[in-house]
Simulated scan of single mutants.
Amino acid sequence: MSEQPSWSEAIVEGSLDWSFLKRDDLYEIAELCAAIAYIDDPAQPRDLADLLRDYDMPHAHADVHAVVGRDGGGTIVAYAWNHISPSNSPLPHVWMEFGVHPAWRYHKIGLRLVEWAIDRARVWYRHIRQAHPGIGPLWAGAAVDESSRVADDLRENGTLAPQRWYFDAHRSLMDSPLPSAPVPSGIELRIFDPEWSEKVRRAHNDAFSTRRGAHDVGEEQWEASLARPDFRPRWSWIAVDTTAETPEVVGYALNSEIHDSETGWREGWTERFGVCPRNRRAGLGRSLLVASMRTFVEQGCTLAGVGVDTDDPSRAERLFGTLGYTFDDRVVLFGRSFSD
């Protein structure tokens, strides 16, 4: 780790004039993000509304956790922003965000920003641990387009490691016959019913318990996701182990609808999808996805889509690829836990 920065210093490197982020800077940051998006076409573009929302969060303190770099004319051409969790969180974390104007990418500014953000996150952790000595380790990371320059900078820095991958996948429901997928023995697929909600939540947390950096979804957050207007409970499927003394949910595909009212275009979207670890590699995930596709067709959708969250992108692409899905660009999550 490089020398610890002072809370009062915003210096990242020597080619730009650095200062801490101010709220008025966000309008220029939004323009910088638009210039970056024009060249890179990122999977998760940032706009002014996003920036203002994040800056105004009560625990954000962006005026000490974000920096901007200006060229000789005073124009912001680079920034880094550490989005911190509340300081009393039992599991503190920092989400890092970076941006460098395409014309300045060959000055190693991005690499220096990565170093600054990681150092800053660790200094913050040491600071809050003095007030809250019982907190857990710090997790710090960044989700970036896998083919982006930021990903290259993170790889070159080497402190954070790839942990998870995210991408969207789509397939037509009209161009080819739907695949078949027998349900494993002892498992019954059922339409989602609200009375199963808590068991499905526990199955979801179990399914993601093997993912590095994953946290359990709490009851309030879970119920809020099911209350969204685009969620379609009658389009959703759960897998129930009927051999257990008390039937348990061991897999799920919770689906929603994406549509365009002007064109009539409709896509069935698998929002949450998972299989409990002990029930994997038996074809259950495939069965849930195919059941969802058939429901989408019955409801008049012409497309099926899914948001994929995986720590094994090759295996995930094999699963979805054999079902006829094609893939958007991948986002990779770099992360690491720190105890000091």
Results as ranks from 00 to 15, higher is better:
His170Val: 12
Ile109Tyr: 03
Thr75Met: 00
Arg164Asp: 05
Glu245Ala: 15
Arg211Gln: 14
Val123Cys: 15
Trp196Val: 08
Gly264Leu: 02
Trp265Asp: 15
Asn205Ala: 02
Ser19Gln: 14
Cys33Ser: 08
Asp17Arg: 12
Arg120Gln: 07
Asn157Ile: 07
Thr295Gly: 02
Glu198Phe: 02
Ala140Trp: 02
Met174Arg: 08
Glu257Ser: 15
Pro184Lys: 01
Ala304Cys: 05
Pro137Arg: 12
Trp237His: 06
Thr310Ser: 15
Asp119Glu: 09
Ala214Arg: 03
Ile11Val: 14
Ala244Leu: 08
Asp47Gln: 07
Pro86Val: 00
Glu245Arg: 11
Lys22Glu: 10
Leu51Cys: 03
Arg280Ile: 02
Phe327Glu: 13
Gly69Tyr: 04
Gln130Trp: 01
Trp237Glu: 01
Asp41Asn: 14
Leu16Gly: 12
Thr270Asp: 09
Ala169Val: 12
Asp56Thr: 03
Ser89Glu: 10
Val150Ala: 06
Asp47Asn: 15
Ala35Ile: 05
Ala34Leu: 10
Asn279Met: 15
Pro194Cys: 01
Asn255His: 08
Phe273Ser: 12
Ser8Asn: 06
Leu178Glu: 09
Asp329Arg: 11
Thr75Leu: 08
Ser148Asp: 13
Thr263Asn: 06
His65Thr: 07
Arg232Tyr: 05
Thr210Asp: 02
Gly72Pro: 09
Val249Gln: 03
Arg286Ala: 14
Ala66Cys: 10
Trp269Arg: 12
Val217Pro: 02
Ala142Gln: 08
Ala66Lys: 00
His101Gly: 11
Leu284His: 12
Glu262Asn: 09
Ala143Thr: 12
Asp175Pro: 03
Val240Asp: 06
Val297Glu: 07
Arg155Asp: 11
Gly158Pro: 06
Arg202Phe: 10
Tyr166Asn: 09
Ser87Ala: 10
His132Arg: 07
Trp124Leu: 04
Trp222Thr: 07
Asp241Phe: 00
Glu248Ala: 04
Gly136His: 09
Glu298Val: 03
Asp329Phe: 02
Trp269Thr: 14
Arg164Cys: 06
Ser337Thr: 13
Asp329Lys: 10
Val332His: 08
Pro133Leu: 03
Ser337Leu: 05
Trp124Thr: 01
Ser236Glu: 05
Leu303Ile: 11
Leu16Gln: 09
Ser87Arg: 08
Gln299Val: 04
Ala49Ile: 06
Gly72Asn: 10
Trp104Lys: 15
Gly74Leu: 01
Gly268Leu: 04
Val250Ser: 05
Ser225Leu: 04
His59Arg: 03
Arg164Asn: 10
Ala80Tyr: 00
Val275Leu: 01
Ser314Tyr: 06
Gly110Gln: 09
Gly99Ile: 11
Thr210Asn: 02
Glu262Trp: 03
Ser185Ile: 04
Asp41Arg: 07
Glu3Gly: 09
Ser225Glu: 13
Trp116Met: 13
Asn82His: 13
Ser89Ala: 14
Met293Gly: 03
Val123Arg: 09
Tyr27Leu: 13
Pro247Phe: 01
Gly307Glu: 09
Trp7Asn: 06
Ala169Cys: 07
Leu138Met: 04
Leu21Glu: 11
Glu146Ser: 13
Phe20Asn: 04
Ile187Asp: 12
Ala143Glu: 13
Ile135Cys: 01
Asp175Ala: 11
Ser337Tyr: 15
Val114Met: 03
Pro90Val: 02
Tyr166Phe: 13
Asp241Ala: 00
Gln163Thr: 09
